[in-house]
Design a protein around this nucleic acid. Structure first.
Lengths: 255, 255
DNA sequence: TCCGACACTTGACTTTGATCAAGCTATCGG
DNA sequence: CCGATAGCTTGATCAAAGTCAAGTGTCGGA
């Protein structure tokens, strides 16, 4: 499918693309095309060679990985997000699988176009480095979250992050199914239920996908959010973070 | 301390530097200087602003992080490795602390020099992107290792990785103290001892820092190493991987 | 409309890992 | 040479998380 004007508009939401020079934009988009996928479509299996940079324009995509019959979710992406950038830069095999969670619209940019644009235009290359750095730091946060906190603490911090991103409201809406959230937080669905139950003492009550946070202060006392782990103000809900919001200095305690 | 000829030689072991053009090398190294540190020196505390790119030329450095009285090791670096590259690219605060484990020699490159060289020389910028991508993929491997395997499986795979890197010998030498290894693998020292005891059934015996692997095949049957998690052939022992070895296709099963 | 998935929850149980408390050993400084 | 410290190991106990099984509710398709 060719790229339409309305798509070109959305592409400008990609941090490393919005300021690119005209010749670079043309080089990158010349071989690109738009694809629509139904829900639950596997876009990429871990181990596959990666020929394209993917840009999610509409819908949502889960990045995951498996080993020995176990599976885990590494991130859930929302528009506008790019994914498997690192594999494209290195022209290497994917380390994560990508599956659509909803009907999705995805722009596919040939890896070779991207690499040649980076080699041609140093400002563009620098913007890609910024994006990669932001993603890297998002992963550092994820590992710290995983290794330093138990499952209830991870849930509590997840809720607080969502609260900020959804505008400090007292009732937030979980953006995906609980089984996906459980996998993202590194626990079983059964344990997620129990973690919610434990947070009842901190004023958290659940009703389907709606989560009411009665006493944010109490929840924070347990969660102890830290700007060195939690990225409350990421531009998108992409757990891997965004380069452009990384610059902000944290304001919470550094415990 | 000024940079000597013998240091310049070692600097060429940095993947993204060895092919840099002369003007770029000069720009990057002009404001750089060499520092020696004793063991157990804190180079950087998480949350600190980062003004320099660090290049470890001699010794070893632990990257770690803490939260709520807990601490964890994210990587142990050996020469020649760079660290906190992502923070330098974004001119952001460090997300990890860095502490020398031994007497170390470190080259410090002003962040501004690095960034301006990237903006000037697109080939250099591309090399940095490759390095960042390799580090990113190293972290993806680390998260998968942490979320998909239990502690005994992580130890078993660690041992197999060391075995390959130390030349397929039947006796490997642990490169750091067991308490650091435990923290790196995400467990307590007590549990590391017990994990070693469990692997006795797979022909693993320990004597101080020397680990004898009697039946590699039995150990592999339990460990199930995967090229999508374990990077057996990384150039250095840096757990975060290296861009230049990422290109290799794996040869083991993808389970 | 009814049926069958499937997501979610709850309870009982098992496994895994952390904590606490000794003890053991190697190393280093006096 | 001795004593202190720190790393490591072991056992006992406890807490956290996974597994198994049963039951509820919802949604979409026949």
């Amino acid at each position: 499918m060719p790229i339409r004007a309305s798509d070109a508009e959305r592409i400008d939401n990609i941090s490393f693309f919005s300021n690119a020079a005209a010749p670079t934009r043309e080089r990158v988009l010349s071989g690109a095309f738009l694809q629509r996928f139904p829900a639950n479509t596997t876009l990429l299996l871990e181990g596959d060679p990666v020929d394209f940079l993917y840009v999610l324009l509409e819908g949502s995509v889960e990045l995951g990985a498996g080993w020995k019959s176990r599976d885990t979710t590494l991130a859930v992406l929302r528009p506008v997000s790019t994914f498997i950038l690192a594999a494209v830069v290195l022209d290497a095999d994917a380390l994560m699988s990508a599956v659509t969670l909803e009907k999705s619209e995805i722009l596919m940019i040939p890896g070779e176009s991207l690499r040649s644009a980076m080699k041609q235009d140093s400002a563009f290359g620098f913007a890609i480095s910024e994006e990669l750095s932001g993603c890297y730091r998002g992963l550092v946060r994820a590992i710290k979250n995983q290794k330093l906190r138990d499952s209830t603490e991870r849930l509590a911090n997840y809720l607080l992050t969502q609260r900020v991103r959804q505008g400090e409201t007292d009732t937030i809406v979980l953006p995906h199914e609980k089984r996906i959230l459980a996998s993202l937080l590194g626990m079983t669905p059964e344990n997620l239920s129990r973690a919610f139950a434990k947070l009842h003492a901190q004023g958290v009550s659940v009703e389907g996908a709606r989560v009411h946070i009665e006493k944010p202060a109490a929840l924070e006392r347990l969660a102890r959010p830290s700007p060195l782990i939690d990225n409350h103000y990421a531009q998108s809900r992409n757990e891997f973070g965004k380069a452009f919001t990384e610059r902000q200095r944290g304001t919470l305690d550094r415990s």
